[in-house]
Amino acid sequence: MEFCYFLTLDSFITDPLTHDFMRKALLMSSLVAAVCGFLSSYLTLKGWALMGDAVSHSVMPGVVVAYALGLPFSLGAFIFGVGSVALIGFIKQKSRVKEDTVIGLVFTGFFALGIVLVSKIKSNIDLHSILFGSPLGISLSDVKQTIFISLLVVILLSIFRKDLMLYCFDPRHAKTVGINVFFLHYLLLTCLSLAAVVGLQSVGIILVVAMLITPGATAYLLTDKFDNMTVISVLSAIISSLIGIYVSFWFDLETGGSIVLAQTFIFLFAFLFAPRYGIFKLKKLFAGYK
């Protein structure tokens, strides 16, 4: 990489766009980030970070089996994602083991099964791209799947936006006024599994949980309004993806890791400087100069 490229910001941004794979990666990753960011508001408010971690790891064997059978890998991932949650619920109910322990042991079990299956099946599955994502090498059929799933999740979340907010805030009231809480619970889980499936293409199974919780956590520090939180969450997720991909292109870094690091930096920035909830409370600092 020549350093003269950095002389203008313009070429820093436009040069990568001359590559077809980069255009595709930027578009797809932004879409995936938007979907995960949208969902992220709900997961952070519901306190489902660990659940997000569990589901995203549990999809591993589903991906491997689907590849081996020539099925759409999203289908396999979805079945195992929802299955892991059902199993967690079942074990929790039927034993005295605490919930966080059950979540931990179920998802690591599923994840291990996935790794063992990869080593046994020995097909052309690229373990590296599953674990760490491969936004630059996304295939056409994957593009179609990603667009389809992303639209589905966005439509579902948009329709049930307010009900899901109520479900996260006060499920007891939801139930009392005749809203189907059982349905909302599984709707959120379904969206979680689907988002994990599309997210893993960008950043891989190991880091996809970051896509599902970091943007929401960042937004939570910046606003007291739910709608604003959703918007900020989506925007910060998209910006992180763009930054991550550009940085990984110019400095030849792992793309998934770069995207997540960008998210982490944005969170840290909010953590330090958020007007009301940041450590340095910028509002107060500025108030001093009035």
Binding site: K162, F169, V177, T223, K225, N228
Partner: peptide, 15 residues
């Protein structure tokens, strides 16, 4: 939870 008084009371009407 990031929600205003108005929005909480409006939840009474959701059903």
């Amino acid at each position: 939870f990031p929600i205003s008084v108005w929005d909480v009371v409006m939840m009474g009407r959701y059903g």
